[in-house]
Amino acid sequence: MVNRFQCNTFLAASAWLGLLGTCVGCSRLPDDGVVFTEVTKSQPITIEDFSTLTFTDKSGDEVKLADLMTQKYLVLVITRGWNNGVCFYCASQTSRWARRFDELAPYDAQLVVVFPVESEQDATHLDDLAKSIKKEPISNEAVPYPMLLDINLTGVDQLGIRSQLAKPATYIVDREGRVRFAYVGESIADRPTVDSVLEQLGQLGQ
């Protein structure tokens, strides 16, 4: 079976890149065929340095992505955001990351999850995301990675991924703030698996 996944650019629909990958079958841990786009080679980027992206923590303080970067790579997962509810699939996606967080360490990588909200009033719903993540069993019952708010979808707009809220997106950023790989969902149901992200990290380390 051949899977075709598409990664779109930061500049909306102007440049879709159809990329082919292979899949070994529909096992429980499939090679889902997701192939990340190597941004540095193939995609125009709206911001040069991802480390300058600024989000808000649950205390309301601004956090620059650079301040969090302690490992060689940072996996930045942008969820769809608050849509009068926490998207179940967002919770499921981030919950899986919580369960498999330790698998990032061998790649010298860390994870940051961003929850876009349209206003400051919606900021409290970051707790709802945390509760949703913890509905499934995770170690120590604590979310092991930072969860940040993108209030007013400012970062989403910088990344050019607004679609009602955010198009779910995943980026791998290096210590210099350069995006090494990017995956922007074709629809809200289109997200890379943990395995495919780990595979990309593995390729970066080679």
């Binding site: 079976m1 899977n3 075709r4 996944f5 598409q6 899949c23 889902d32 065929g33 699939y89 679609s163 074709e186 629809s187 809200i188 149901a189 289109d190 997200r191």
Partner: peptide, 26 residues
């Protein structure tokens, strides 16, 4: 859609004024 057997796809069904609107992948 090409990706239909490779991942989840999203369906929206809306009860509007005079019609049911049906969307696939938005």
């Amino acid at each position: 859609p090409e990706a239909m057997h490779d991942r989840f796809v999203v369906v929206d069904i809306e009860y509007q004024k005079a019609d049911w609107y049906v969307f696939l992948e938005e």
